[in-house]
């Protein structure tokens, strides 16, 4: 099998997997199975990043999204401990479903018209793509060109941490 065929095969597997798990995420009744499908979705996206030679982003995707954020989501689902009757209460209203379907249809039409009519013509990954995705090159520009946003993000994370603790704290009426 040639190199290109392997690329096509990998892209097809990850793309179909990503779309399928995304659809399962928004259609499952039980929030826990939604969350598990979302974890699978993040792994599929990580695979797609690898097909683009973005190793660092692929690793961070698994660590941050599939690891940290989804653990938080599952933790909150467990903490809320919704009863059976509350899970059963999730019934789709007609208006909502029709709106959703209409939006999906319009978007898919827009897409088809955009990309089928005018392809971008970018069919070849440049040799540079292999160099820029590595941890070395990302770290290099993170600590030189993007140093200020990097430090600003640490402040944002601290603010979010304190904010989350303050909001979720149990208020004592004393």
């Amino acid at each position: 099998m040639s190199d290109f065929n392997i690329q096509v095969l990998l892209f097809a597997i990850f793309a179909i997997g990503a779309v399928a798990t995304a659809l399962l995420t928004i259609t499952r009744r039980n929030p826990v199975s939604s969350a598990m499908n979302l974890v699978a979705h993040f792994f599929m996206l990580s695979g797609l990043y690898l097909t683009l030679h973005a190793q660092f982003v692929a690793a961070v995707q698994v660590l941050v999204y599939a690891g940290a954020i989804m653990v938080l989501v599952v933790f909150v689902i467990m903490l809320l401990n919704l009863g059976r009757e509350q899970q059963a209460a999730e019934t789709g209203s007609m208006l909502r479903n029709v709106t959703g379907a209409a939006i999906a249809l319009v978007f898919v039409l827009m897409l088809t018209l955009t990309f089928v009519g005018k392809p971008t013509g970018l069919n070849v990954l440049p040799q540079k793509a292999i160099e820029i995705g590595t941890v070395e090159s990302i770290g290099q520009s993170l600590f030189t060109e993007y140093l200020f946003p990097f430090e600003a993000v640490s402040l944002l994370l601290l603010a979010a941490l304190i904010g989350a603790v303050v909001i979720a704290r149990r208020h004592n009426p004393s």
Binding site: V64, A68, V73, V76, L156, A160, A164, I167
Partner: peptide
């Protein structure tokens, strides 16, 4: 991703409250 992590923490705290 960093902003999404912050959003996750605050958003889920709001859901909890």
């Amino acid at each position: 991703m960093a902003v999404a992590a912050a959003e996750a923490a605050v958003g889920l705290a709001i859901v909890l409250a």
